[in-house]
């Protein structure tokens, strides 16, 4: 009914605009999404600040027992903790860890999912059957408990956490890619490519992966956000990186105290707020990317 009035802006006589590369038009589509732009700005800010931490903040692990639990001041912008460490510095250094874990595990998860999902979807048959059963098995694990087990068994460091998260999260992206591949494989444009003599590799690279990239990017941002949250939860439970390494979660963990929660908000509001805003920003950017990566999205606002 409403398809009857669907937009088709270009008439046969209409002059097409020349010289706009697909990527510049994708950027224009992204720019339309104000939330995504805001999210991108915030993420960039947090990332740059974290990277520049050694130059703009003090030593995060320097203990100074003469200034414990001090409120924010010009000397310590966000006050100090129980060991007299500078909270501002710990938050920035903590951001390095949290963001690194978030992005590294998202990228590895997406990569594993893309490889297995494409193969399973394209080859089908027994391979697909095994893949899907494996996905179901892994998704039914109690993830957090297993992550705690692996982290305590193999060491509380960034590499272990990233690998373990990839190990338990890949089914999410893998199943997504597999389902996309199965659907796209049956599309007429893929059959057309086969009728032109295309091999499997061409079809995969030109048709299957580009179609999966959009949803996969969105899944990737969600996974990054989730990894940050899982790391926070791990640290909060005391199974995160070994002290004194700071992460947003471990700073929160140290604030587990009624007095601190009631009277010393500078110890828990900054990391809590950063976790929330970062995860939110990543989600906004994911939405924006999904629209930007689909050329069918309108460029007009």
């Amino acid at each position: 009914m409403v398809t009857d009035v669907a937009m088709e802006p270009l008439g046969l006589e209409a002059e097409p605009s020349v010289g706009q590369s697909p990527s510049s038009r994708a950027w224009r589509r992204f720019r339309r999404n104000k939330l995504a732009i805001g999210g991108l700005f915030f993420l960039t800010l947090v990332t740059v600040m974290s990277i520049l931490a050694p130059w703009i903040a003090q030593d995060p692990n320097a203990v100074d027992l003469s200034v414990v639990l001090q409120p924010p001041s010009t000397e310590h912008w966000l006050g100090t903790d129980q060991a007299g460490r500078d909270v501002f510095a710990r938050v920035l250094y903590g951001g390095r860890v949290s963001l690194l874990i978030g992005f590294a595990s998202a990228i590895s998860t997406v990569f594993i999912g893309l490889v297995f999902g494409t193969i399973a979807g394209y080859r089908g048959g027994v391979f697909d059957w095994i893949f899907m059963r494996l996905v179901e098995v892994v998704l039914s694990f109690p993830t957090l408990v297993l992550i705690i087990f692996f982290v305590t068994r193999f060491g509380r460091n960034v590499t272990t956490i990233v690998l373990v998260m990839a190990l338990f999260q890949w089914p999410i992206s893998g199943r997504l890619v597999r389902n996309m591949t199965v659907a796209i494989k049956e599309q007429e444009f893929v059959q057309a490519a086969r009728a032109f003599g295309a091999r499997g590799l061409h079809t995969t690279v030109r048709h299957l992966i580009p179609a999966a990239i959009g949803p996969l990017t969105v899944a990737g941002t969600l996974l990054a956000a989730q990894a940050i949250l899982i790391e926070s939860a791990l640290s909060f439970l005391g199974f995160g990186l070994s002290p004194p390494t700071a992460s947003w979660g471990s700073i929160l963990n140290e604030a587990q105290n009624l007095t601190i929660l009631e009277t010393m908000p500078w110890l828990w509001i900054p990391p809590g707020l950063l976790i929330t805003l970062t995860v939110l920003s990543i989600n906004f950017v994911g939405d924006g990317l999904r629209d930007a990566l689909d050329p069918r999205t309108s460029e007009m606002s």
């Binding site: 088709e8 802006p9 270009l10 008439g11 046969l12 002059e15 097409p16 605009s17 020349v18 010289g19 706009q20 590369s21 697909p22 050329p295 069918r296």
Partner: peptide, 13 residues
């Protein structure tokens, strides 16, 4: 025409 080269299918009737 040549001007249509960089367009996407959904922009056509």
């Amino acid at each position: 025409s040549e001007g249509h080269l960089t367009r996407y299918p959904h922009e056509f009737s």
